[in-house]
């Protein structure tokens, strides 16, 4: 089944991105297809490669990047939300790209389910 994912919060203030990550990982392991992970609101901060958590804590930017690379995921950061928050192409971690909000709607149309993680 095609499961689209929407992440509305950044990597630290809320648990939303953690839950989304674990859900995505589990869905892939079960053989589901994840056509796109879309990052909106403060979720765009999940793509910031300058993020440096303490070494004994998880690094969600890196985790998303690595999961994306391993499974060829389309990790899309909303352009309007990103611009507001100073997230530019130069700051993107590997595997992320910036695109329009239309990509979220397209995911909603084309995926069998859209699962929202937010606060």
């Amino acid at each position: 089944m095609k499961l689209g994912i929407l992440v509305n919060e950044g990597p630290f203030t809320h648990q939303a991105s953690d839950t989304a990550y674990r859900f995505t990982e589990a869905a892939l392991a079960k053989g589901h297809e994840i056509p796109r992970v879309f990052f909106y609101h403060d979720g765009v901060n999940n793509a910031n490669k300058l993020s440096e958590p303490q070494s004994d804590d998880r690094n969600l930017v890196k985790l998303w990047s690595e999961l994306g690379e391993k499974h060829g995921l389309d990790l899309v950061v909303c352009v309007a939300a990103a611009l507001r928050r100073g997230m530019t192409d130069e700051l993107l971690a590997a595997g992320f790209r910036i695109s329009g909000l239309g990509q979220l709607i397209e995911t909603g149309i084309e995926a069998d389910r859209l699962v929202v993680f937010g606060d």
Binding site: V79, A80, G100, L101, G102, E106, I109, E110
Partner: peptide
């Protein structure tokens, strides 16, 4: 309001 460029590539499916 969204930017004009948000509407590029309108869904044709």
């Amino acid at each position: 309001m969204p930017d004009e460029n948000e509407f590029e590539g309108e869904y044709q499916g």
